[in-house]
């Protein structure tokens, strides 16, 4: 007999705050403008405009942009590892089907441990593959690194482990 349908995976709610919203129920697109803050689980995105749409399969897609002189900022908190990923760029695109986040224009991704920056990637375009937890960085015009190239800084794991240990100790003192 046919097995019971797989229960819907537990998806976090997505909360979006903005000054104004225009929702097109026919094309299933929403345009959020003005101080846009999107929160989804432990990820927070801030920008000036966010356009979301949904494809026929129900996957969500989003494009966030920033006004002139500002950038889109994405923060992903990982409390267990005391880690925070901060990504910035002139535009950020999220594809629900693949789970990828693409930063375009002055793109940077920084890994912080307990507020202290360690690893850092700069380029013209950076793709974060959520499912595999990997990054791809591309140089080109409007790169955040000099000469239109990709610049990547990776600290030794030992230093990161020390920082984590200090963090745990500090936390233990406090509790």
């Amino acid at each position: 007999a046919q097995g019971a349908p797989a229960p819907a995976q537990d998806e976090p709610d997505t909360v979006i705050l903005s000054d104004t919203l225009h929702y097109d129920d026919v094309n299933k697109t929403s345009t959020f403008t003005g101080n846009v803050v999107l929160t989804r689980g432990s990820m927070t995105l801030r920008g000036d405009k966010l356009v979301t749409r949904e494809d026929a399969q129900g996957n969500q897609f989003g494009t966030a942009t920033a006004d002139k002189g500002r950038v889109v900022t994405i923060r992903q908190e990982n409390p267990e590892k005391f880690e925070t990923i901060i990504a910035t760029g002139l535009q950020a695109d999220y594809a629900g089907s693949s789970g990828d986040i693409t930063l375009t224009g002055q793109a940077t991704v920084t890994r912080q441990i307990c507020g202290q920056s360690f690893d850092n990637v700069r380029g013209a375009r950076i793709i974060y593959h959520e499912k595999s937890g990997t990054y791809e960085a591309f140089g080109g015009q409007n790169s955040a690194a000099a000469g239109g190239r990709v610049r990547s800084l990776a600290q030794p794991q030992s230093r990161i482990d020390q920082a984590i240990a200090r963090c745990k100790a500090k936390k233990a003192d406090r509790s």
């Binding site: 909360v15 979006i16 903005s18 104004t20 919203l21 929702y23 097109d24």
Partner: peptide
């Protein structure tokens, strides 16, 4: 079409 003119919270 639905438009929210201020303080949108979705």
């Amino acid at each position: 079409q639905l438009t929210v003119t201020a303080a949108s919270d979705v």
